[in-house]
Write a protein that binds this DNA or RNA. Structure first.
Lengths: 120, 120
DNA sequence: CTCTTTATCAACCGATTGATTGACTAACCT
DNA sequence: AGGTTAGTCAATCAATCGGTTGATAAAGAG
C-alpha cells in the first residue's frame, strides 16, 4: 500500500474514476457518510464483485478509503483528492478567464498599436 | 451534429476526456488562448492524427470547440463544461463537509450521555 | 467445528481506447 | 492547373476496461 504515485498519475486516476456513472453514484452516496460494499451495491443491477472493483478504482485514485470493522469493510469518502481535481480545473478556468479579460481590455483600450501578445 | 446528449453523458465524457495527460495538457495550453492542431501537436511526440483524435474527444465532451479560419481549424476552450465538472464535484464535497459538521456537533453534545446513536 | 455473512481474488470475455500508417479533402498560393 | 499547407478519415493493433462466474478468505454466530 501507499505506492507513492505521482500527482499526475493520481489526477489521471481520479478523473478516470469519476468518468463512470456507477462510480460517481458511489461517490454521491458516500458523501452522505460511509457505507459497506453491500450497501453500495444494493441500488445497482450489477454484481457485488463489479462494485468491489469500482471501489478499488476509486481507492487507487485516492478518492475513498476502506477500514476494517468485523467482516465488513466500510468505505468512506476522501475529500482531499476531490479537492485536487477541482483545483486542477479551477486553475485553468481562472487562467482562461484572465486571458479573456486581457483580450477585452486590449480591444477596448487600443486598436492602434496592433500589438500581438499571443503565444506562450 | 449536435447530438443532444444527456447531462450525465456529457459529464462521463468530460471526466474521461480529462483523465488523459495529453488532453489535460491541451486544455492547459488552450487556457492561454486558441491554437491550431499543429500548434497543439508540436509539444508531443505522437502523430498529428492522434492529437486530432484527442481534440475530437475534448470536443464531444463539450470542453472545446473548433471554428474555421482559412485552412486552419483553431481550437478554443469552452469553459462552461469545465464549470459543470467542478459543479458536480463541489456539490458532493459540500454535502460531505456538512455531514462531517453534523457528526462533530453530535459527538460534542453527547460527550457524557454515552451516546450510542450509530447507524445500522 | 460448522455455517453464514461479507468481501475479495482469478480467469475470462466483448467493447472501447490510444496509437499507428496511408489515403484523402479543403483551402490557399503561385 | 499544380503544389503546399492543415487537417481528417479509415483500417488496424495491442492494451485497458467493465462486466461475468466460480472459488476463496476472514470474521462472527450457533
Amino acid at each position: 500500500m501507499s505506492l507513492d504515485r505521482s500527482a499526475d498519475d493520481l489526477l489521471d486516476r481520479a478523473f478516470a474514476a469519476l468518468a463512470d456513472p456507477v462510480r460517481r453514484s458511489i461517490v454521491a452516496r458516500l458523501s452522505r457518510g460511509p457505507a459497506t460494499v453491500n450497501e453500495l451495491a444494493e441500488p445497482f443491477e450489477i454484481s457485488k464483485q463489479a462494485i468491489s472493483k469500482h471501489i478499488q478504482v476509486l481507492e487507487q485514485a485516492g478518492l475513498v478509503s476502506r477500514t476494517r470493522e468485523a467482516q465488513r469493510r466500510p468505505v468512506h469518502l476522501d475529500p482531499a483528492q476531490l479537492e485536487a481535481v477541482t483545483a486542477w480545473i479551477d486553475r485553468y478556468r481562472l487562467i482562461h478567464e484572465e486571458q479573456y479579460r486581457r483580450l477585452d481590455a486590449l480591444l477596448e483600450s487600443s486598436e492602434d498599436t496592433g500589438g500581438k501578445e499571443e503565444k506562450r
